[in-house]
Design a protein around this nucleic acid. Structure first.
Lengths: 247, 247
DNA sequence: ACCCGAACTGGTGTATACAATCGCCTCAAA
DNA sequence: TTTGAGGCGATTGTATACACCAGTTCGGGT
């Protein structure tokens, strides 16, 4: 599921996939829009075959729905769906954390997690709000990536990855572009404390605690989303994958 | 996601989809087997195009994996994966139940659930083990179907449906074919008590309890699986979708 | 006015020829 | 022995023509 070959577009189908995905995420193709093969093929200057291939993959990603009579429509996402997708990620990461704790993880795995946490520590400077945002964002992604696989279950890892593929539900949804906002920088301290606690709970085989912490950790994304909605809706367009959301 | 047009096969692609799915679930195509378009097309007496379409859909279902260099392989499922898929269904149904309780459901929805529970009651006769298995199985499916949508979240409903599509993880995995075994028939009393309790918890807006009950309810499937593995492995071939599992 | 069916339109479904690519094998040179 | 270039066969990628299906419209008979 993570081997969706996209070296920035080798085949026509891959390029079509990337272009279409971009248009959907940018909101250029509104939810509910039916995608017709012929016009799309003309627009992309390719034949219908790779267009179909691309649409099929987008259906796998959950950005398109197949319609009964054939063809595809752009899936509609409202803010409620974004909230639910974030909740779902929390639930699944929570399950990954719980199972990791219950089933036990190797010393190497714990060491890996602790190293990531340690490197994340180093992102924070003396004064609150002084954060190496770029590095934090990368390490945060590593943390969540590792966590998904920590239970040693391919089934779980795959489903966590799947829901995280929706850009607005991904663990790094609010990371890369909100570095300017002081409030977000400061909230990172709390989030990172949760990173530390999750690892500790897993190491101590406290499954229920690990699960609860991972769920609460995902709530940070929801709080950020709600902040954006309440305080500064102009940020919506800057956040990747939030442009397609309608309400 | 539930509109996978399969009126038993109108188009070649649909027939190919059904045939391939059957072969995978029956274990005729072992996990790891690479599926080549040309031989498959010849075998099914159709062209490559609908074969690709069918494989693409099977990838969406999670029965095939795409490989980097193009093409598909049959996904491998071990018993550990079955366990995890059942666990995952429990987690997701638990989330559906919790959110339904937390967010509240309409009187009509509760009435619908209670009606299903009531009809399920009627499946049980005077003596333990006297069960209308056929009807129970159908109603059980309705119960789980309704539960998935009870939170009013399309995102949740869709993901519950998705994991339930793997036949060995579905709520009715052990229903239709185990009616003979007395032990299973008796265990149904317990399972049905859980149905009743889940509805009661949701109605009382006891989210945590509803979640825990739904999770535990899914464990019944796991117990049945483990029973089959321990006591009577010959049943494996009779259970739908368990033939593909290797360990 | 009403019905019914033929033709048309707009879309996907399918077959097929050909192009591009990947993996592997060979063979030669370091 | 290793390594790298080259070629070759197997397999997927792509274009395109045509088939087919479902609405829809239009016409004619009643």
């Amino acid at each position: 599921m993570d081997q969706l070959n996209e070296p920035t577009g080798k085949t026509h189908a891959t390029r079509a996939l990337i272009e279409l995905r971009k248009k959907i995420l940018d909101g250029e193709l509104a939810g509910g829009t039916r995608l017709f093969e012929v016009p799309l093929a003309e627009e992309l200057a390719i034949s219908r075959t790779p267009v179909r291939e691309a649409m099929s993959r987008l259906a796998e990603e959950g950005l398109l729905d197949r319609v009964r009579s054939g063809g595809f429509v752009v899936r509609t996402f409202g803010f409620a769906d974004v909230i639910d997708a974030i909740e779902l990620r929390g639930v699944l990461e929570g399950t990954a954390a719980r199972l990791a704790a219950e089933r036990g993880v190797s010393a190497e795995q714990i060491a890996t997690m602790r190293e990531i946490v340690h490197k994340l520590d180093a992102c924070f400077g003396e004064v609150p709000g002084d954060v190496d945002f770029e590095t934090y964002s990368e390490l945060n992604e590593s943390f969540h990536h590792e966590l998904a696989g920590l239970a040693g279950s391919e089934v779980i890892r795959r489903e966590v990855a799947r829901v995280s593929r929706l850009p607005f539900a991904s663990p790094s949804a609010f990371s890369p572009d909100l570095g300017d906002i002081a409030a977000f920088r400061r909230s990172l301290n709390l989030a990172h404390e949760q990173h530390r606690a999750i690892v500790a709970a897993i190491a101590a085989r406290e499954g229920s605690r690990a699960e609860a912490l991972a769920r609460e950790h995902a709530r940070a994304a929801r709080r950020n989303l709600e902040h954006v909605l309440r305080e500064d809706r102009s940020l919506i367009d800057q956040l990747p994958g939030l442009a397609l959301v309608v309400d």
